[in-house]
Design a protein around this nucleic acid. Structure first.
Lengths: 348, 348
DNA sequence: GTGAAAGCGCTAACAC
DNA sequence: GTGTTAGCGCTTTCAC
């Protein structure tokens, strides 16, 4: 017994096949599929029965050609960095695929020359292979935004237009500052006063944003920050080295890091010095990566609401592609803090 | 200055536009694109110039409709398991996208009801949205293979047809047994004699395959295996518990694990007991996950050659879709061992 | 509410 | 070698 009533093979049925079987014209079948309310109830039923009998599904290519839409969303992906804890993209991709499907879109993946943020987009656009893009690699700055805007290509960015506050395109982002602020407050509440920051180099807008959250929380608590911050590359080794220097020179009792990768570096340092993670020095990372979840002791981490990001992205996309066009500007979502043992106990 | 000589917007140029500009017929332009050798050199040049001037790229929908091909490969993805170290799919997806592009294909992602291995495939197939599938979730057994075969749907499986050795479809897999055998040999060479196995439950064919590699290496070395193996769920907690029991009851000096997730559980146990990873007890995982790369001490791990898997998959796909049809049966690739500190020093 | 005609942009088949 | 004809399967007019 087959899962559907369609034939097991042979050429797929067309609109004409359904029309013949239902004894109506092709147009009526098309309406039954796309504008059911136009049909009389009994005709509709007859057509739907024929559709079910035949296992008919509209041919995508034909529909795409006619409607000038592919119902495909392009997403450029990059190789996951080896030696890094970051798997944000993976989680986002899955959420995006899921959410897109509900909106009638599929996700088409492509890659491009890593040194050229624009490569790959143009061909897909010109060949009308995709209806829109989701642009994620905005940490490079996003020349894509400007370029796509110029091409009148619909797109939604996951990431704010840092450089260009007049940008009018739709975007969704996660409030990294709020995340790090809450991580810092969490440590303050536990009684820490010397909380260090390890983040990315100054040209990273995302890094500076996250750092601002730490800085804000410290200032609000009336605590000093000077000498407590370090800016390095996003590698475990950098995190280790930065934490060594900070421990020697500023004796912090806790670290907030711009990434789980950096936080892992801190854990290394603590291990090497025989300091107990959590009990002696607390650590909070960013991204709630698999590493944070699996390492011992568990690493507290700021978790981006990527499922919600995907939902907002698709909503914006629908606005962009739908009729009437509904413009959405920017959406900023707040991450949550996942508390694990690296936060340590409350300090007396 | 624009990146191409095409107009910045307006409706994209069609074959007819190019034909007019080059002073040839539409068909000649089509040939210039698809069968350049059919044209006289000077005509070809003229057409190519017109194509470049206009920034012409064939409309995908039209081409797809005419050729009955979408040049899209469907790949069903699942949510990454939280609390697990596994990111194999992520790496594979990227390699597949990259390799597919070189072969003229794009990857279309879709999801399906996790409890139904078939869901999602049918609609894409019937609507001719994809030319073929890459089937990865074969650990469920793969009813997809049989089903797709019945539909005459082209597909390549990443994963052997464990249950059905008469299956004739194309597949690519990684030799887990060979990987675990080499991991075990590596530990034997360091002087270990009591090497334990922690793997998955018996109904996992992949798990049993990997276990066989450990078993084979032990037998070849003339060492006993009884009491040294454990089969559990793929979670960190299970790995921790299994290693506790094994340490108590069989006193192994090394562990080979079916996954990095399980290996992390072993590391937890060693930490809790004050045993030094590597020095006191060696551990090898499987997958070379980010966790293995980032944890301290580094976790030795068997790494699947996913880039090569992708290449073989695409090769098989090209055989399936190309003319003439070139059937490829099965390809088994050998993983490599990435040695890190958890292997420990040679033992006297 | 339903049907007939036209055409989206492309390429396979054939004529010249 | 190049041009002409036809049609892939669908949806958007516009009659009826």
């Amino acid at each position: 017994m087959s899962r559907t009533s369609s034939r097991t093979s042979g050429p797929p049925p067309t609109l004409a096949d359904v029309a013949e079987r239902a004894g109506v014209s092709r147009q009526t079948v098309s309406n039954a599929v796309n504008n059911p309310d136009l049909l009389r109830a009994d005709t509709l039923l007859r057509v739907q029965q024929a559709i079910a009998d035949l296992g008919y599904l509209p041919n995508r290519a034909a529909r795409n050609l006619r409607t000038r839409a592919s119902h495909l969303i392009g997403l450029r992906i990059q190789a996951a960095q080896e030696g890094t804890a970051n798997a944000t993209m993976d989680r986002f991709v899955h959420s995006l695929v899921e959410t897109s499907r509900e909106a009638g879109y599929h996700v088409l993946l492509f890659t491009g020359d890593p040194t050229d943020p624009l490569s790959g987009y143009e061909d897909l656009l010109r060949s009308t292979a995709v209806d829109a893009f989701v642009v994620t690699d905005t940490y490079l700055g996003n020349p894509q935004a400007e370029w796509l805007d110029g091409r009148r290509a619909p797109f939604v960015a996951f990431g704010r237009p840092w450089e260009n506050s007049e940008a009018t395109h739709a975007w969704v982002d996660v409030d990294g500052a709020a995340g790090c602020e809450s991580a810092t407050r969490h440590l303050l509440a536990k009684g820490h006063e010397r909380i260090a920051w390890i983040g990315w180099r100054k040209d990273s807008r995302i890094g500076e944003d996250r750092r601002a959250g730490w800085h804000r929380a410290m200032k609000e608590a009336g605590l000093p920050t000077s000498g407590l911050a370090s800016r390095v590359e996003d590698t475990v080794a950098s995190g280790r080295e930065a934490s060594e220097v900070l421990l020697d020179e500023a004796a912090p009792t806790a670290f907030v890091c711009a990434s789980d990768t950096l936080a892992m570096g801190v854990l290394h340092t603590l291990g090497l010095r025989g300091l107990r993670v959590g009990d002696d020095v607390a650590v909070v990372g960013f991204d709630d990566s698999q590493v944070a979840q699996v390492v011992r002791p568990g690493l507290s981490s700021v978790r981006q609401p990527l499922e919600d990001v995907a939902i907002e992205v698709v909503t914006a996309l629908e606005g962009l592609l739908g009729r009437p066009r509904v413009a959405q500007q920017g959406v900023l979502l707040t991450p949550s803090l996942v508390v694990r043992d690296s936060s340590g106990p409350d300090r007396s």
